[in-house]
Amino acid sequence: MPILDLLHISIADQCLYGFAQGRLAVRLAVSTALNGPGEHNGSGCTPRGLHQVRAKIGAGLPQGAVLRGRRWTGEVWTPDLHAQFPGRDWILSRILWLSGREPGRNRLGPVDTFRRYIYLHGTPDSEPMGVPLSHGCIRLRNADLVALFDRVPVHCPVQIEEAACPQWASAPLN
């Protein structure tokens, strides 16, 4: 599996497209923010624009590992654990922590993606994909995130846009 050199997230498609050497190599369903796109701290929105993977957290953890404050709690998600904490925003398996690259749009001040703790992270398999339901992050299936994690280097560019990507949606994968 080639290392990815660009991730493109379409809010309209609710899809992550991963590119290696300019060719589409990965297509994964995601869930972005229920509150839609937006950059302001406290908005619960998914930030737009050019970002980068600033940190990778969770290498080697079991699939479904529960992360709180970017640390493993020692728990692995189960339906029973979910029932004990019904309102929790589950961050599972791995974290790809994003940092904005556009000062004033998604970097620094009240729009800083990194300080908003915006991640690509796993979520319970009971949660739907392809539907905006997150609190601002980009949720993925745990198995998809675990497979993606080692293919995405720190500093990998991540473009998040509202627009649909019809030419990519139907392109064959490498």
Score class of each variant (00 low, 15 high):
Gly64Ile: 04
Gly64Thr: 06
Ala65Gly: 01
Ala65Val: 01
Val66Pro: 01
Val66Glu: 01
Val66Arg: 05
Arg70Leu: 08
Arg71Gln: 15
Trp72Ile: 02
Trp72Ala: 04
Thr73Trp: 03
Thr73Tyr: 03
Glu75Val: 08
Glu75His: 04
Val76Ala: 02
Val76Lys: 01
Thr78His: 01
Pro79Gly: 00
Asp80Gly: 03
Asp80Arg: 06
His82Leu: 05
Ala83Tyr: 08
Gln84Cys: 03
Phe85Ala: 12
Pro86His: 02
Trp90Met: 03
Ile91Pro: 00
Ile91Leu: 15
Ile91Gln: 15
Leu92His: 00
Arg94Asp: 05
Ile95Gln: 12
Ile95Phe: 14
Leu96Ser: 07
Trp97Ser: 03
Leu98Glu: 00
Ser99Asp: 12
Gly100Met: 10
Arg101His: 00
Arg101Ile: 00
Glu102His: 05
Gly104Lys: 13
Gly104Trp: 11
Gly104Gln: 12
Arg105Cys: 11
Arg107Cys: 11
Leu108Asn: 15
Leu108Pro: 00
Gly109Met: 05
Gly109Arg: 10
Gly109His: 11
Val111Gln: 13
Val111Met: 11
Asp112Phe: 04
Thr113Val: 15
Phe114Asn: 09
Arg115Ser: 11
Arg116Phe: 10
Arg116Cys: 13
Tyr117Pro: 03
Ile118Met: 14
Tyr119Glu: 10
Leu120Val: 04
Gly122Lys: 11
Thr123Glu: 06
Thr123Val: 12
Pro124Trp: 07
Pro124Asn: 04
Pro128Asp: 14
Met129Val: 06
Gly130Gln: 13
Val131Tyr: 08
Pro132Glu: 10
Ser134Met: 07
Ser134Tyr: 08
Gly136Val: 02
Cys137His: 02
Arg139Leu: 14
Leu140Asp: 08
Arg141Asn: 07
Asn142Ser: 14
Ala143Thr: 11
